[in-house]
Simulated assay, not measured.
Amino acid sequence: MLDIEDLAKSFGGVEAMRGVTLDFPASSLTAIIGPNGAGKTTFFNLISGHIRADRGRVVLNGEDVMGRSSLEIVRRGMARAFQVASIFPDMTMEDSLIAAVTARRGELFTLRRRAPLPAARDRAREILDTLGLSSRAGALSRNLSHGEQKLLDIGLALAVDPKVLLLDEPTAGMGAEERWRMIEKVHALWEGSDLTMIFIEHDMDIVFQIAQQINVLSYGKVLAQGTPEEIKRNQDVIDAYLGKDHHHAVAEDAR
Rank of each mutant, 00 (worst) to 15 (best):
D3V: 15
A8P: 00
K9P: 03
S10W: 04
V14C: 07
V14E: 03
E15T: 08
E15K: 15
M17T: 11
V20D: 01
F24D: 02
N36M: 09
K40M: 10
T42Q: 06
F44Q: 00
L46K: 01
I47A: 01
G49H: 00
R52Y: 09
R57V: 06
L60S: 03
M66Y: 10
R68M: 14
L71V: 13
E72T: 08
I73Q: 01
V74H: 04
A81F: 01
S86N: 15
S86V: 13
S86L: 11
I87G: 02
F88Y: 15
F88Q: 06
T92A: 10
S96M: 02
R104G: 04
R105D: 14
E107K: 12
E107W: 10
L111A: 12
R123D: 12
R123K: 15
R123E: 15
A124L: 09
R125N: 09
R125K: 10
L140K: 11
R142F: 09
R142E: 13
N143Q: 11
N143H: 14
N143F: 13
L144F: 11
I154G: 04
L156A: 04
A157K: 00
A157N: 01
E169R: 07
P170W: 05
P170T: 09
P170I: 11
G173D: 06
E178P: 06
R179D: 05
W180G: 00
I183G: 05
E184L: 05
K185R: 14
V186L: 07
V186R: 06
A188L: 04
W190C: 01
E191L: 14
E191F: 03
G192W: 12
S193Q: 08
D194G: 13
L195E: 01
I200H: 00
H202A: 07
I206E: 03
Q213P: 00
I214S: 04
I214L: 11
V216W: 01
S218K: 10
K221C: 09
G226A: 10
Q235S: 11
I238C: 01
A240W: 05
Y241P: 03
H246A: 13
H247F: 11
A249L: 13
A251S: 11
E252L: 14
D253R: 14
A254C: 02
R255Y: 06
R255C: 04
